[in-house]
Amino acid sequence: MDIAMIATEKLPVPAIRGGAIQIYLQSSAEIIAESHQVTVFSIKDSSLAENETKNGVHYIRIDEADYLAGLVKQLEAHHFNIVHLCNRPAWIERLKAASPDSKFVLSVHNEMFSESKMTREEGEKCIQAVSKIVTVSDFIRQTISKRFPDAAEKIETVYSGVDLNAYHPAWTDEGGRIRRVMREKAGLNEKKKVILFVGRLSKVKGPHILLQAIPEIAREHPDAMFVFVGSKWFGDDQVNNYVKHLYTLGAMHPEHVTFIKFVRPQVIPYFYTMSDLFVCSSQWQEPLARVHYEAMAAGLPIITTNRGGNTEVIDNGKNGIIINEFDHPHEYARVINELLSDVQKREELGRNGRRLAETKYGWKRVAENLLDAYQNA
């Protein structure tokens, strides 16, 4: 098959500036390209060529300002058997008109079919035009089929994945080495109990609630250290009012908080390896944050919120703990304190998570599921 995979207009592929969709496309495209022709379209970036082939994948990059028009020209000029469009259902009508004989597969990573995003007429036209819809979680699948029942037969959930070779649990030789080096660089001794947050510093991600939980945690575990990895937006270290607020809260507990601004995606796995516990404090109806896959691959116990699709990859008490009272600092403190006090439980959760990642969430499995979707479109 000759396959086009289309990213959104937000970030480039490969995922040099991060982004869940960009990582998803790059990782699955490289495996699919072993047996099919794959072209990935994304926006231009000053550090990437406009047109190149890398790891078997042909990349074409288009000006952000003219992205949709540029995609239309590309599809008019080249016939693809499959056009896989990410997260932009509103573009389907124009792209389908440009390549009417192609089968369109739409992957949905957020609540893109909600009333705030599109009218009923727009949604119905999109659903009629596509051959298949794949969603990153059952939560997203249900948000579509609830509003558009006729779409149900076209939708299937294809969970995202993680590069298992990039993440090294601390109990492995390589993981132990990385943990020692990273902690030395960060000035953290081995006795520190590191709680990791990775993600955008945004109110909907809930880092302020973790910071509010610190006094209760520090009383029981004076060796606890929160490490926040992220910035207000992918690759953007500018400080807005909310981030200033976080820094102010963190400055009240200098012995227990450190902020690491945006880091390259290739470096992210090292922060997981140096940590003891991972927390996803999402406050919004999260589609299913990819940090869960990363934490599992690194063999970290996970604490996450019962929001959106986050719980779909967590077997409560087996590879993580689910918090129902997601906006209560005390609940985070209670669960974090329990796990920090129980080394055996942390290791059990972490090892179960790594096994689950190896079984279900490697990129090979994602690529195979996407290929099945393409072939059945």
Rank of each mutant, 00 (worst) to 15 (best):
M1Q: 07
I3R: 06
T8I: 08
T8Q: 12
T8Y: 00
Q22T: 07
I23W: 00
Y24H: 15
A33H: 09
A33F: 05
A33S: 14
V38K: 09
V40T: 14
K44H: 02
K44V: 13
K54I: 04
V57H: 10
V57R: 03
V57K: 03
I62P: 05
I62W: 02
D63N: 15
G70T: 02
K73M: 05
K73I: 03
L75N: 05
H78D: 12
H79Q: 11
H79G: 00
I82K: 05
R88W: 01
A90L: 12
D101E: 15
F104I: 15
V108A: 13
N110I: 00
E121Y: 04
E122M: 06
K125C: 08
A129H: 04
V130Y: 03
K132G: 09
K132V: 13
I133L: 14
I133G: 06
A151T: 12
A152P: 05
K154E: 06
V158L: 14
G161Y: 01
H168C: 10
P169G: 08
A170E: 11
W171P: 01
R177D: 09
E184L: 07
G187C: 06
V198M: 09
R200I: 04
P207T: 04
H208E: 14
H208Y: 05
H208D: 14
L210S: 11
A213V: 09
P215R: 06
E216R: 15
E220A: 10
E220L: 12
H221N: 11
H221E: 04
P222I: 11
P222T: 06
F228T: 07
S231L: 02
K232I: 15
D236N: 14
D237V: 07
H245Q: 13
H245F: 13
L249F: 10
E255L: 11
V257R: 01
T258V: 10
I260G: 04
K261W: 09
R264S: 12
Q266G: 00
P269H: 09
Y270C: 10
F271I: 01
V279I: 10
V279W: 01
Q283S: 03
L288F: 01
R290Y: 13
H292T: 06
Y293D: 06
A298Y: 03
A298M: 04
I303T: 13
T305W: 03
G317D: 06
Y332T: 06
Y332L: 03
I336R: 02
L339F: 00
L340E: 04
S341L: 05
S341C: 03
D342G: 10
D342T: 08
R346S: 01
E347M: 12
R355P: 02
E358P: 02
K360Q: 13
K360I: 02
V366F: 15
D372M: 14
A373G: 02
